[in-house]
């Protein structure tokens, strides 16, 4: 289980949105920034491969990077190994 750093999540999301990580604010609405189901699906697939406790539905429910990070932190304890 890798530690879930906010910066790693930011880099992943920024990459899929084709923007610089610095341009993705913690509280920016991800859908407004261009995250859609296909990109979310790709992201979820990547994270699942790496064992992160985040799935596709989480990406829709959490609207910002900050919320996603909080969700991952909260779930880390009970995530399957």
């Amino acid at each position: 289980m890798t530690d879930i750093s906010r910066e790693a999540l930011r880099a992943d999301i920024a990459d899929i949105l084709e923007i610089a990580p610095a341009d993705l604010a913690d509280d920016a609405n991800l859908m407004d920034a261009g995250l859609d189901s296909m990109r979310a699906m790709n992201l979820a697939a990547q994270w699942e491969e790496r064992g992160l406790p985040l799935d596709f539905a989480d990406l829709g429910e959490a609207q910002t990077l900050a919320e996603i990070h909080a969700l991952a932190q909260a779930r880390q304890g009970k995530a399957p190994a």
Binding site: D36, S37, F56, A57, L59, G60, E61
Partner: peptide, 12 residues
């Protein structure tokens, strides 16, 4: 086909 679930309660 569009799954129509992103950002929706139907995602679960």
């Amino acid at each position: 086909p569009h799954m129509g679930r992103f950002g929706s309660a139907a995602a679960r």
